[in-house]
Nucleic acid binder design. Structure first.
Lengths: 231, 231
DNA sequence: TTGACGCTGTACCGTACGGTACGGTACATG
DNA sequence: CATGTACCGTACCGTACGGTACAGCGTCAA
């Protein structure tokens, strides 16, 4: 039987090793989900999305990827499945910055926060992220597609899951003080992202460059420590 | 001659009374721009956008507004002009909260900030704002449409223009300290909005209610004063 | 009364796109 | 060699939609 990926035949996957049942269409992605050829096709879709949003036709994908429409439909079910697979494929490529695992110091914490902020700002202002977020936002209204869910899971929610251990470690080390880690995350997210993402999504052409991101990240980390730091 | 609104025949308007030439398609909206009947039509479009995003057809608009497609094209030029007019019409309805104009006290400032934050959160989590922002984000990629520009002008930029006088007054009164008002605005925006807007745009169904907004606004204002306040 | 005008409703046209079918090719397997 | 499989390229089908044309109707002014 042919490898197909649309819901009816997708193999079930547990999310993050927990016992909780997680819909595989939304779960954190794994690397071996697509064949080599399929990844080539999905990369072509990504290129198209960056170049012209999600307004491309399936025929254009076939042309760009040198494959037949029939194969696309066999692999991905329909246009929406193709988009979903593309978003998941890109999500599987994103790697979060490493956080310090040894004993936390004040400087180590601030450095980790700054690095995380810079990494996040770099990602969300990148062409790829902008294109994917635009597509996900567009489709979020129609309830037919789950792109929004996927981007949320692999974007803000993943960031939160990744960051909260750092917050907890900071609290355990007496460096941070907060009641609720979720609230602390919200504060950090706001200080880092602020109006940058919505402005970029709405098409403002001026985006912060590397040095601008460095300034913003440093400031955001320091401000976060002012609000949630101890001593 | 018939009243038409697409670029070729739209009357020029100066923005905000300054001598600067401002493209009328992007300028802050005025109330008398549309006739009564046109406003009815545009309100019908708003309803459609809330109900089904921008995926509606022009025929659906004509049906919903009980008018002919020909009239729609005569008034608004094309589908994009209709969307643009709709966004501008909605923008002209938004009113920002009043800010205190008498002598600023610490409590007065905090109260104004809290009120502004609550007002802003209420707006951006509303169905209408979500629908309009989704449409603007979708079209921002294609460079053909200027919806993104319009929403930016009437959203974040308008908020900033409205807020900076308050910041300056706070600084003049010795209540605030900051180098750059733009930087202060960014901080305030981040603390207020944080991840709320992107999550809502991506379709997360849980939105803060009135009491949640109250909590968030109070906290954001207090945090802003912690970072940028004096004494 | 008559004619101009602005509007509604509907029929119409061209096209673009999602989805399917089919012929042809390369390759692997027995 | 025969058979099956996976794929490419393309032709094809149905439909939905943007945009235009037109007939009919109410209004108002001359």
């Amino acid at each position: 039987m042919t490898l197909t990926l649309h819901p009816e035949s997708a193999p079930g996957r547990a999310g993050s090793g927990s016992g909780q049942a997680v819909d595989p269409a939304v779960a954190l992605p794994v690397d071996d989900e697509f064949t080599e050829r399929q990844r080539e096709v999905l990369d072509a879709v990504l290129k198209l999305m960056v170049a012209q949003g999600d307004g491309f036709s399936v025929a254009a994908v076939a042309r760009a990827a040198s494959c037949s429409k029939e194969t696309l439909y066999k692999w991905f079910g329909d246009r929406d499945g193709l988009l979903t697979a593309t978003v998941r494929w890109q999500a599987s490529k994103v790697r979060m910055p490493k956080l310090p695992e040894d004993r936390l110091t004040g400087e180590g914490l601030e450095k980790a926060l700054t690095g995380f902020a810079a990494s996040w700002l770099t990602v969300i202002t990148g062409d790829l992220s902008v294109a994917l977020n635009r597509a996900a936002v567009s489709h979020a209204g129609s309830a037919k597609s789950r792109l929004g869910e996927i981007v949320l899971t692999n974007g803000p929610f993943a960031m939160q899951r990744r960051l909260e251990p750092l917050f907890e470690a900071g609290r355990a080390a007496g460096l941070l003080a907060f009641d609720d880690a979720g609230e602390a995350f919200r504060g950090f997210f706001g200080l880092v992202v602020a109006d940058t993402q919505i402005r970029v999504l709405l098409g403002e052409d001026h985006r912060p460059d590397a040095s601008g991101i460095s300034v913003l990240s440093t400031r955001a980390a320091r401000q976060f420590l002012t609000l949630y730091g101890r001593g």
